[in-house]
Amino acid sequence: MTEFLTTPQGRRIAHDRLHGSGPGVVFLGGFRSDKEGTKALALQAWAERTGRAFLRFDYSGHGQSSGEFLDGAIGDWFEDALAAIIALTTGPQVLVGSSMGGWISLLLARTIPDRIVGLVGIAAAPDFTEDSMWAGFSEIQRRALIEAGQVALPSEYSDEPYIITRRLIEEGRGRLVLRSPLNCGFPVRLLQGTADADVPPAVALRLLDHLTGPDIRLTLVKGADHRFSTPDCLALIEAALTEILGKGAA
């Protein structure tokens, strides 16, 4: 059943949670995704089967939460996630971050390391506003972003283009995680499709190289795309979670 949390910033965050055994599992969705996506619902079904505490939620400007998407930025969505974990979970948590959710998971791990005991990144996209969007813009697009405050990019998932705002790019520069050391003292499992057109395998390899920690692994799935939502891919996500929880986190 969907409930709402008001964050310290005054945003209303829609969420669904299951009470169960710990450590809990928190799903963090991607850019323009919501808590009703295939992976989020599959993980909830897994949590129901295993009796595991579980949380899924919508960032502000996404899904059923308050706010307009175009007003948001990485820092806002990180604050939403942090507020949700602090208010709606107890004890240690394993984060499952999809695409942008992988970036936000890393920000959370850096901010509240005492609460995080594992991380599963699914096509994790750290620093994408800088390294993918801004770096990929033409001079015309950069000028439009600066002068008009936004630029439209085509989307393969919708007839509507992505509108990228100047605030998204500029605010994201204060949230980058690949420019300074990032130690993970807990198991990390990165899952990546080789046919991902949005987050290419090179991003996963860069993240693998950048992270430090005792137990970090990357699994490449030949032919899997950015959605990573086929039955086989969903089974890999569940297996990664089960492995992490079996390493003393349970």
Rank of each mutant, 00 (worst) to 15 (best):
M1N: 10
M1Y: 05
T2M: 15
E3A: 13
E3C: 14
T6I: 07
P8H: 07
R12H: 06
I13A: 02
I13W: 05
A14G: 08
A14C: 07
D16I: 15
D16H: 15
H19F: 09
S21D: 13
S21M: 14
G24M: 09
F27I: 07
L28Y: 00
L28H: 00
G29F: 01
G30A: 07
F31Y: 14
S33H: 01
D34G: 04
E36V: 08
T38L: 14
K39I: 10
L41E: 14
Q44E: 15
Q44G: 13
W46L: 10
E48K: 12
G51Q: 01
R52L: 12
R56Q: 15
F57E: 04
D58M: 14
Y59L: 02
S60I: 05
H62K: 04
Q64I: 06
S65V: 03
S65H: 01
G67Y: 12
G67V: 06
G67H: 04
E68H: 09
E68K: 03
A73M: 11
E79N: 13
L82M: 07
A83R: 05
I86W: 15
L88T: 03
G91N: 02
P92N: 15
Q93C: 08
V96I: 11
S98P: 00
G101K: 06
G101Y: 03
W103F: 06
I104M: 05
L106G: 09
L107Y: 02
L108W: 00
I116H: 13
G118I: 03
L119D: 09
L119G: 09
G121M: 01
A124N: 08
A124G: 05
E130P: 04
M133L: 14
M133R: 14
G136I: 04
G136F: 00
F137C: 07
S138D: 06
S138Q: 08
R142P: 04
R143E: 07
I146S: 13
A148W: 15
V151D: 05
S155F: 01
Y157G: 00
R167C: 04
L168S: 09
L168A: 10
I169H: 07
E170K: 09
E171H: 12
E171Q: 08
R173Y: 05
V177L: 03
V177C: 00
L178A: 02
L178T: 10
R179E: 03
L182Q: 06
C184D: 08
G185N: 14
P187V: 06
P187Q: 02
R189H: 07
L190H: 01
Q192I: 02
D198P: 02
P201D: 03
A202V: 04
A204Q: 11
L207N: 08
G213A: 09
D215H: 15
I216S: 07
R217N: 13
F228M: 04
F228T: 07
S229G: 09
D232V: 12
D232G: 12
L234A: 10
L236T: 01
L236R: 11
L236P: 09
I237F: 00
A240K: 04
A240L: 10
A240M: 11
I244F: 12
G246M: 04
G246S: 11
G246H: 10
K247Y: 03
